[in-house]
Design a protein around this nucleic acid. Sequence first.
DNA 1: GGATCCCGTTACGTC
DNA 2: GACGTAACGGGATCCA
Length: 588
Amino acid sequence: MYYNIKTSDELTHVQQILINSSKIAYDTETTGLKWYRSKVFLHSFSNGEDNFVIRVANFNKSVLENFLRSILEDKNKLIIGQNIKFDRHHLRHTHGIEILGQICDTMLMSHLMDENTTTSLKPRCKAVLGIAMDEKEAVDGWLKENIGANKEKWDFSLVPEHIMDPYAGNDPWLCIKLYDHYLPSIEKHFRQLYETDMKVFDILYKMEKNGLPVDLPYLKSFQAILEERIEKNKKENIFFNFGAEFDVDSPMEVAEVLYKKMKFPVPKLTDKGVNSTDDEALGQIDHPVPKGIQQHRSMSKLLTTYVISLQEQAVNGLVHPDYSLTRTRTGRLSCSDPNAQNLAKNDELRRAFTVDPGEEMWFWDQSQIEMVGFAMYSKDSKMINAIKTGVDLHAMTAAEVLNKPVDQITKEERAMGKGTNFAMIYGVGKAKLARYLSEYVGRKIEDTEAAGFKGKYLNAFPMVYAFQRQVMSVIQMYREPWGHFVKNKFGRVRRIESQKAYTGVNHLIQGWAADMMKAAMVKIEEKFHPKWVQNIHDAIRLDLPVNTTVEIARDIGKLLTDFPEVELPIKYTMERSQTNWAEVKEVR
DNA sequence: GGATCCCGTTACGTC
DNA sequence: GACGTAACGGGATCCA
């Protein structure tokens, strides 16, 4: 049951009820998903019994905002949300209000309790509470019927009240029910992880709010340059040498041109058995046309995915990425709109990422954190010694596998060592290893060579082999309460189907590394309250005042790497720039 | 019949 | 291994 609150008297009454409720759920309905381009048009609350829908349009601005403050700024109140980072952004952007109460989030709870299915509120409530709410269907139905009429400037606020409000009224009620359901299990199994994740959630909120400064005039000029290069490449390298024009962006047409018309032998097939035209296949053909297509691909990736999209997403010279704590199975962060974690390593692109005047961008990264985790989990003495004495791990791997002294390892051999180390962490088979090594070494490596390398590797590092076997067998054993699963040292659980037990090693290492970074970020926030700008898995960017000393930066680096319980040294590297990302210089 | 939407596939950027 | 984004292309759907 919900109440649509329309008068000041009703609002006052609701205010009394909510002020007296120590635990409430809060939700917003907005005109869009991007907070920096949308407004809240509806607030909804629930105390678990009564649900209140409050439309922004029905109230005087200051009356409404006073009401919101009286509830959401109450530091003693527990405020529960479903992905409340979203509501916090919208609340701030629309009303300039911050939630000051203690925050809990059911999406984070859902993810800890089950990382393999959707964390979306209604499906989750249906699955674990058996409560099915179909009010959303009416909203969808109405949208479907009416969206055709004026799809240009569409938003949720146009859905009629009698359809939208029952749906909006349900959400906070469901949220509080799910919270009550999950809380005992979270307390029992994931208390520490949940606490850390909530703190990281708050840091991410700040990071997104701060945004990344981008140089729009530069991007615009870079776009023009790229477009020119792409045209020129198509004309002079691809079409000229082929003798006709075609759609270079179409894998189908590329295959037609290369394998039917130009009659090159097919180097490889895709997973579905189609003649492949990916970079590896093109690399096998020595001719200007495939070379031109390779160039075209990397240039248009840069242009569309980064250069154009960044300009479209920027507001006042800032892009505001959306980080998620619940979209990976391992506990890593993910990021979208834009994905600030996979911005191409390309100086011309990274020049576009600037820093505000008076500040300097600083990057720290945890060196080889996954290798440290690998050594720690496998307890391999050679690896542990190498990490303790600072020996080059990848060269050492090559030396061990090839049975020769480290100082005689060539560049290519080291690359193979590095590739193999990563492959072991990833848990790949020989076919994938071969492809992977080829990329690293820069020449074609056959499956047999890769398999041989892997075999020698496992002989040289028997503990790694034992570790793999142990993880597999732990997963194979069906156990309570999670079925087939592994758990990392932070207690993060990955439920894995027994047939896919090989992914267990990867989960332990990758998830452990992710939890290490989260723990470090929390420590850094608590000690320094810095301006958070970016996270790239094992690296962070903070923008600090230009007069910040190297000593302070080193203190931050220490927090990023100082984990006595790991019993292995973790190192960090530090970079900074007062201009842009392409200009960062290592600080020693 | 033609425009539009959806979804699987292919490809490629990061750690 | 873990992701997110873009583009294509075939099939389904909508609309006139």
